[in-house]
Design a protein around this nucleic acid. Structure first.
Lengths: 356, 356
DNA sequence: CGATGATTGGAACGCGCTTTCCGACCATTA
DNA sequence: TAATGGTCGGAAAGCGCGTTCCAATCATCG
């Protein structure tokens, strides 16, 4: 029991249960810590085959795994990346997270995932904590906020992070000069508007998301501008704010129906909202989609195929966005910030039709 | 610039960009490291108010955050918990994760989230890596595997983790003697069977999940036994294996229809599968749910309400399960392992009806 | 006014690991 | 055979922080 022997030499140190240290392995293999270290994580230096074998054997026997914090301290670099999302249980974010985590795993990195529960303060706080953990990089997923005070403080925190050698990438418009994967929110919304116009709709409502999100702003602008260019007005009362959730869409639709019962089409600014809108239409308002009213969403989450009717939406390659952002974050660190634009594409399905 | 002064004293050490250390703060405040440390993380010892203020001020100015790895090393305890799921983008797991992460955040812990992409080897590997990171604890979400070789190796890894002072909790049957949140899979499946029997179904098919999961085994057993007790047989060919995904359910239904076109009800072993089954029925087989055939799922994911018809399923309080498991993991560490049973409850909705 | 105790800042060590820097040892070559 | 170069193992100095132990300062009491 070489491990316990080494432990016994410094009694009282044991924190709780015994952790096997590199020293233990070295002792057990009859070599120095330096040698053990070298064989256990392929240093530049080569160790003789027999010693190497002894070390490996001892490590296996003792179930040794290196102490990551200690390693991080000594190397002053860690093996974790941060992933900050607004809500884990939102399919938009979890699809992106799946892509990002796959790439992180390919690079042998562990992912610290933080969910802000849609609170910008927590986002700032998390960046700071990830900085404390000396994360390799952090991926900011989801929309930025239009409020400049938030953006500024986030920016400061990010700057400090980068100054410490960390990398940053964003998905969505964050008004921050770092690697960015930028979905064409504006263009997508324009095309949504065109589809609805082409179908003949002239009286259209919008169930929006939190107005403080840049994503919402851009989608809304693109939509409104396109309507206007076609001579169709989108009055303020035709736009009701949701919260980007299914329930927000439900409530939003009820309010919209009260304000403007004459709408023949509703554009929801993301898919969960659209799903909520359709539920409200069906369960409370007794309107049939698309015969009485058309509904469009945005993002194309997997569930868009499984609602009835299937949801016409603007497709974004979510998982791919996550992958690309993570690659941006991890690959060739020394190059100027890049912005990758991602096409948004209308997918016409069952929830849209000409007005009745 | 006290920070850069301190840096300048050890040139060449700077890794990339300058990290502010506790020493920098101490220098800038004109105190010793010890004092700075004491004020910055409320040690037992009290520091004089004026010095404390100087330190706080300096820390803020320099945007100091403590080096978490160094801190973890010195304290030999970290502020991270691990969360291992099978797939982030599966609503079952993301709902649980949301609950778990909320609790972790309450405790001021960062969550390392690992997605195994349904590969048991990765699960074992992740436990080991989490052990390396000296995580406070790890939460194993999702079913265990029936293969004893896997279970044994996982168990060994977990044991090593616990021996190192880490805590462990599981959701689902892992055949491991640790804190467990155990959904009543068997009871839930029994009730599902009863509902179908009560409706008059006698010829029933099952679209299952990966047979190597204990969850699948238990749900299947409960279902089969209850049918048998009622004199209804569930022949092997009536059970087709899916993979717990929507697409798996789709394919599974097609196969089931080929093998046993006479079934009047299908029990899908989780909700995504059920959604796939309904899609196959609608898009390829031209059967109406529930008029021609009934469909039941398991778990009650949010989307169960948004498919048409709404999905009859067995409800599990997913988010709450995540919360409770995380509490088990974090609260009063010194007590024998506990098992919390979670009730499964049938929710009757639109996808079930008497046979035609 | 000197002794005693309470308070508080600082020096120093240790956490586990990486990484120079040396020195020992071997095999070459002149 | 002696000198030379190349290998390879080990001693030791950090990495940034927490924390014990000491010394110094101050107030208080006899």
């Amino acid at each position: 029991m070489p491990a316990s022997k080494s432990r016994a030499e410094r009694p009282g140190v044991v924190p709780q249960g015994s952790l096997v240290t590199l020293q233990d392995v070295a002792d057990s293999a009859g070599v120095s810590r330096a040698t053990a270290s070298r064989v256990l994580n392929g240093s530049a230096r080569v160790v003789g085959p027999e010693l190497a074998d002894r070390v490996l054997r001892a490590a296996k026997l003792l179930r040794y795994v290196s102490n990551a914090p200690a390693q991080a301290l000594a190397r002053s670099t860690s093996t974790v990346v941060g992933l900050i999302v607004h809500a884990v249980d939102d399919p938009y974010f979890s699809a992106i997270a799946a892509g990002a985590m796959r790439v992180a795993a390919e690079h042998d990195l562990l992912t610290m995932m933080a969910s802000t529960f849609r609170d910008p303060e927590r986002e700032i706080d998390y960046v700071s904590r990830l900085r404390a953990h000396r994360a390799r990089g952090v991926l900011l997923v989801g929309s930025g906020f239009t409020a400049t005070s938030i953006t500024e403080r986030l920016h400061e925190e990010i700057t400090a992070f980068v100054a410490g050698g960390g990398r940053v990438a964003c998905i969505g418009e964050h008004s921050i000069p770092f690697d960015t994967v930028l979905p064409e929110n504006r263009r997508g919304a324009e095309q949504a508007a065109k589809l609805l116009l082409a179908l003949g709709h002239r009286c259209i409502g919008v169930v929006s998301g939190p107005p403080e999100l840049t994503t919402v702003e851009h989608r809304l602008d693109g939509f409104r501008d396109t309507l206007r260019a076609a001579g169709v007005d989108l009055p303020a009362r035709a736009v009701v704010a949701g919260d980007f959730t299914r329930d927000g869409g439900y409530a939003g639709m009820l309010e919209l129906a009260e304000r403007m019962p004459e709408v023949t089409a509703v554009f929801a600014l993301n898919d969960p909202t659209a799903v909520g809108v359709m539920a409200a239409l069906r369960d409370e308002l007794g309107l049939r989609v698309p015969d009485d009213i058309s509904v469009m969403g945005f993002d194309d989450i997997p569930a868009a195929l499984d609602v009835t009717p299937t949801l016409t939406t603007v497709r974004l390659p979510l998982e791919e966005m996550g992958e690309r952002a993570m690659r941006l974050l991890l690959e060739d660190p020394d190059r100027p910030p890049r912005t990758v634009r991602v096409k948004a594409e209308v997918v016409s399905r069952g929830s849209t039709a000409p007005p009745p």
